[in-house]
Design a protein around this nucleic acid. Structure first.
Lengths: 236, 236
DNA sequence: AAGTGGTCTAGACCACGCG
DNA sequence: GCGTGGTCTAGACCACTTT
């Protein structure tokens, strides 16, 4: 009857414990040996489970010490799974300019919606990211109401939407697609970012795919890159 | 005496054979079993070597069939290790507008050079990428003369600089850093891209780190994203 | 049925970090 | 010295693809 693989069950067990705070960020997991006892298996299998968690960015291993729980900030293209703000490596203050509310889908979304999404209303909210008290990124977010329901911002874990999804709903980001364009600022964008209409800004459209069936997160970011360019690094 | 790990030796052996064309793209590697005989080891070790090659993007596995050699096009941020053009998923024609030549370093490079690089002259060349016979990306490239020497474009493998590095020099890309800015086109850029001065374009500065000590590849890309936005996807 | 990769067992020894 | 993770052996059985 059981079809799931043993290493996957162990992997999911540990992942859930990390997501629900049983193993806080910075702490060490129990040793591989003790997992072997707990699950009546061998190190090969336990190590396979831990390898997968490492690939997913939940832990890192330290030779001679143990497996340490990481803040999940795995790079995903320009952005990170920790949140939209991850692309900017300065101190960022976030101001919610439009509270989450149910609306129709915005036709400006750069990706084609699934049939399920088209049948659903969507939840929309807007935020502005500030660096040194100057607005730098204007950010629109959408997701399907049917797939998740409305999440009120006062429920945000540490103010982060992605952290809330992971820790409260056990939803993880699985992948993303994005489009980048350089455009002149419209009057509205310019007003929000405190710049002049027509200034060059970076427009990033992104779709995050999640581990919950039918749930995608859509984002539309307008970045003033004049003082704070978007930076990131990659390693193979 | 021997310090290298067995799986690493197997990994390097197979990688070299892929890079030198002994296992062409699309073909299947010998079976895990046969590698076990060849290296007098067990499948665990062979599989570890193949796992690493999979992570590096050289192969993929097909259950019941074998390990297939891939065209190495692993995504690296916006770009790909196959080449700068990888960020644009249309048919791209490349025109070499300035042949590789030895010059001083351009102060416009967005990254700080290493001491070694500062002591060396650099090799510079410029290309323009066309889509549907329209110029879309203007690309400046630099690297340290001392670290590699000058590579003449008629030696480019299939016209690709990165393929040349991999197949002729066994140099692989290890990582990259980049900065993105939205800027108005200068007169020179506008001229090269056939647009008007002041139009919004995307400026990408990138440094690729390679497996050869002291060799970084610097790139400066000016992209007209009006008709062809930069697209990419990621999976965790 | 034969051959491939995927999972798993039950050990062994080594390299690293720390008290 | 002890506990940790890293490498490796020598098998077994399963799942998938092809003939």
């Amino acid at each position: 009857m059981k079809k799931t693989k043993k290493y996957q069950r162990i992997q999911e067990y540990i992942k859930k414990r990390i997501q629900t705070g049983k193993h806080p960020v910075g702490s060490y997991l129990p040793s591989e040996h003790s997992f072997c006892h707990q699950f009546n298996t061998t190190r090969t299998t336990v190590r396979k489970a831990l390898d997968e968690l490492m690939k997913e960015g939940f832990i890192e291993k330290e030779h001679g010490k143990g497996s340490k729980v990481l803040e999940r900030r795995k790079s995903l293209g320009l952005l990170t799974v920790k949140g939209f703000s991850g692309a900017i490596d300065y101190e960022v203050k976030t101001i919610l300019t439009k509270e989450p509310k149910v609306t129709d889908w915005d036709p400006s979304i750069a990706f084609s919606l699934t049939k399920e999404e088209q049948k659903s209303k969507c939840v929309y909210f807007q935020r502005v990211r500030h660096i040194n008290d100057k607005p730098v990124v204007l950010e629109n977010n959408w997701y399907s109401l049917n797939a998740l329901g409305i999440i009120t911002p006062n429920k945000f874990v540490e103010g982060s939407f992605f952290k809330t999804l992971s820790q409260e709903y056990l939803i993880e980001i699985m992948g993303a697609e994005q489009e980048l364009r350089s455009i002149p600022a419209t009057k509205d964008i310019a007003h929000n970012l405190g710049i002049s209409k027509g200034n060059s800004i970076l427009h990033i459209s992104v779709r995050f795919r999640t581990s919950r069936a039918g749930l995608n997160l859509y984002g539309d970011l307008y970045c003033n890159t004049k003082e704070y360019p978007i930076r990131n690094s990659y390693f193979l």
